[in-house]
């Protein structure tokens, strides 16, 4: 994990000089000709985002999540605090900090947004001080979102209780966390959101729009089964889709159907399907290859057979973050 901290971008600074270093960060950028905010409002922080890189995070993975946070922060100007806990057996006795800033220039000269990162590395013994350190890195009167990436140790929840309690949303990705992570005893279970489910926004929307043209009774009368099949890389999304479909079917007033999810062999890796099975001649099936962004509906609800192509894609990681945070 020490390597991870060293490898993430940024300038190492004394922990006690984070705020001062962030301010001078832009001076250095401006003097070297890089985009930098010239007025305070370019740095308008609207959100605090804590990206917690769990102990199982690899270097490449960390870089990917860091870039996702940066893309997100360009859309919603944020103060991002990246937590890099050290392994349990690491003998380090110090907390280390880095600061990093990035600006993006949009279509107009006014459209310049900048984000600031503070990266903290710390041994287990320092977790008791983390609350104070993070509190001076964030803008405490603005909402805080906590993104524990590959957070896999239920037992460590207590170390982060303050931040988790303060967080408006806690963002778990069930594709990279243990399946049970969603049901850990989080301090605010109602704040937990699954990024796998957020990624399916367009899928839920397409299916929802299609099925909403039929009455709940039409959809659930004689319904015997609801099944999801997924490709190799979409197991988490498969479970999320089934959970959503089950929830919606129950909201339609039916609790008679069987619900199942399974991997489909020899399918495209981003394959996903949802099928309703009926005891009569009604049918509904939606299939998609999310890699090519294509899906297809086949439905027969007695009135007429419908066959329809539709676009379907997963949300980009940064859009999944905003979807899970704000909706």
């Amino acid at each position: 994990m020490a390597d991870l901290f060293d490898a993430l971008p940024g300038l190492e600074v004394p922990v006690g000089a984070i705020a001062k270093s962030l301010a001078s960060l832009w001076d250095d950028a401006a003097s070297s000709g890089k985009p930098a905010p010239t007025v305070e409002d370019s740095r308008a922080t609207q959100i605090n985002l804590v990206l917690h890189l769990g102990l199982n995070t690899t270097f490449e993975d960390a870089k990917t999540q860091f870039e996702t946070a940066a893309h997100f922060a360009m859309r919603y100007p944020s103060r991002v605090v990246v937590l890099c806990p050290l392994q349990e057996d690491d003998k380090s006795t110090t907390m280390r900090a880095k600061v990093y800033g990035e600006c993006a220039i949009g279509k107009s000269k006014q459209d310049k947004r900048c984000c600031e990162f503070v990266i903290l590395s710390y041994p287990r013994s320092f977790r008791q001080y983390l609350e104070s350190e993070v509190s001076i890195c964030i803008s405490s009167d603005l909402p805080l979102y906590y993104w524990p990436h590959r957070f896999s140790a239920n037992a460590n929840l207590a170390d982060y209780r303050y931040l988790l309690t303060k967080a408006k949303r806690i963002l778990i990705d069930s594709s990279t966390s243990p399946r049970e992570a969603l049901s850990y005893p989080w301090p605010k279970p109602e704040a937990v959101r699954d990024l796998a489910s957020a990624r399916l926004l367009h899928v839920r929307q397409a299916i929802g729009q299609f099925l909403s043209r039929y009455s709940p009774q039409t959809l659930t009368d004689n319904l015997t089964g609801v099944s999801v099949e997924h490709g190799e890389k979409l197991m988490a999304e498969g479970y999320a889709l089934l959970a959503w479909a089950k929830d919606r079917i129950l909201a339609c007033g039916s609790n008679q159907a069987d619900f199942s999810v399974k991997e489909r062999a020899h399918s495209p890796e981003l394959f996903l399907s949802l099928r309703f099975t009926y005891s009569n001649s009604q049918s509904f099936v939606w299939t998609a290859d999310l890699k090519i962004g294509h899906s297809h509906f086949e439905a027969d609800f007695k009135t007429a057979k419908t066959s329809l192509d539709a676009a379907a894609k997963l949300l980009k990681p940064e859009d999944s973050l905003s979807e899970a945070m704000f909706f």
């Binding site: 839920r204 929802g208 729009q209 709940p216 339609c252």
Partner: peptide, 17 residues
């Protein structure tokens, strides 16, 4: 709203048009 549109923002629920 229709159960299959609940949870989606209203702007994501346009009917066939």
């Amino acid at each position: 709203r229709h159960p299959f549109l609940q949870g989606l923002s209203k702007h994501r629920g346009a009917p066939p048009t």
